[in-house]
């Protein structure tokens, strides 16, 4: 059978049962299997150990395994829920689930908060926000004076820090993000809605439908 060879790919120790992952997420079993196709590709791009290392994540995002990027680093660290320096398949699927178009907005808001809470203090502090703006400027070759950066940070805090204590707490963030839905645009990946179309090789391999599973 022509499609049998793809099945010979050894599933690594990080592989988790698609039935369980589908139950825990918005994805169907077929979609979890299709995500495995993507996962295999990324996790074998450099180290070939079936786990996604930061360099492989960067390579997939930027076509460059050495590109330093604060925000890609943050996303990698949040995907790496076990904090062991790599992303396994279960972590990959559960984390991507946040970015699914059908995932409730509250989950996206909570994930974005953790992304911005650089030091994990439970609040987004002024210094953290300034650090992120400076990282963005550095990344984009935009030139802004320190005064202009201060102004942007002050303005943002004026809007978001409702009790004026100099930090944005999760409740303030929830209100602020709900009022500014454009902030969460990157928290939804339309690709995830049609993941089996993006990786049609899976459909040939499995031959199974979600009705059957």
């Amino acid at each position: 059978m022509g499609c049998a060879s793809s099945k010979q790919f050894k599933r690594t120790s990080g592989y988790e049962d698609p039935d369980i992952l589908a139950k825990e997420t918005t994805f169907t079993v077929n979609e979890v299997e299709a995500l495995y196709e993507l996962y295999k590709k990324i996790s074998h791009s450099i180290f070939k150990d079936g786990l996604i290392h930061k360099e492989e994540f960067q390579l997939a995002l930027f076509r460059n395994s050495h590109k330093k990027n604060l925000f890609a680093d943050r996303i990698f660290d949040l995907f790496d829920q076990k904090r062991n320096g790599v992303i396994d398949f279960g972590e990959f699927v559960r984390s991507l689930n946040i970015f699914h178009p059908d995932t409730p907005m509250e989950e996206k808001i909570a994930f974005a908060f953790r992304l911005y809470d650089l030091r994990g203090t439970g609040c987004i502090e002024r210094e953290e926000l300034k650090e992120m703006v400076l990282a963005l400027l550095n990344e984009s070759d935009l030139l802004l004076s320190d005064d202009a950066v201060e102004q942007i940070v002050n303005q943002t805090f004026k809007q978001a820090d409702m009790n004026g204590d100099g930090k944005i707490d999760p409740d303030e963030w929830k209100i602020f993000a709900s009022k500014n839905p454009a902030l969460l645009k990157n928290m939804t990946l339309p690709y995830l809605k049609d993941i089996t179309m993006a990786f049609p090789s899976f459909v040939l391999i499995s031959g199974a439908s979600d009705d059957e599973l």
């Binding site: 076509r63 942007i152 943002t156 454009a182 645009k185």
Partner: peptide, 25 residues
């Protein structure tokens, strides 16, 4: 004109855009 740092970051940072993961085909 209001300027929102989070808006700036989320709309401009390439590291915040995961669509690259799906475009490596």
């Amino acid at each position: 004109r209001t300027c929102n740092a989070f808006q700036l970051i989320s709309s401009m940072s390439s590291g915040f855009d995961l669509s690259g993961l799906f475009e490596s085909e």
